[in-house]
């Protein structure tokens, strides 16, 4: 028995133009796809990569950073307007780590040194320093805002 929510009220063919377009798209993707699968070590590894990156993103990376963001909002409590002061440097630092992970983590350090003649030691240090600057800058902005808010607040009348 299939749950009702999985079934549309009325299953139709849909737009014929859309069908033609998608058929054309699948044909081209198929033409390139057989070549893609013939090029790798083994075809199933390429399929695994193609589908795997999508699943890894949709079912691991996205839920993880969403959960981290919800935890941040929860921790902020009533001071929701402060969330961005943590979110912005965290997102920027995280993006740099995501893109340059092989260099920052040092996992390619040996090959990098041999190929380019330069040491990969600096990448981790530079990323940490950028991260420190981002959070410090954000903290300064928050302090400035808090000070301004304190000054503008009318004196308490007794």
């Amino acid at each position: 028995m299939i749950p009702r929510s999985l079934l549309p009220d009325r299953f139709t063919l849909g737009s014929p133009l859309q069908l033609l377009l998608l058929a054309c798209s699948f044909a081209l993707a198929g033409y390139a796809g057989v070549r893609l699968l013939a090029g790798g070590d083994t075809w199933w590894q390429v399929v695994l990569w193609f589908v795997g990156v999508a699943l890894l993103h949709d079912l691991v990376l996205l839920p993880l950073y969403s959960a981290a963001d919800r935890a941040l909002i929860g921790a902020a409590g009533r001071r929701r307007s402060y969330v961005m002061y943590v979110r912005v440097p965290a997102v920027l630092s995280g993006l740099l780590l995501l893109v340059w992970f092989p260099l920052i983590s040092g996992r390619v350090a040996e090959r990098y040194l041999l190929a380019t003649g330069r040491s990969a030691d600096g990448f981790l240090a530079r990323w940490l320093l950028i991260t420190a600057v981002l959070f410090a800058g954000s903290a300064l902005l928050l302090v400035r805002r808090l000070r301004r808010a304190t000054k503008q607040r009318p004196p308490v009348v007794h």
Partner: peptide, 15 residues
Amino acid sequence: LPPARSVAHALERVS
């Protein structure tokens, strides 16, 4: 949900 409302929609999701 539903995963597909029509044949075209089902193909679009595969795409």
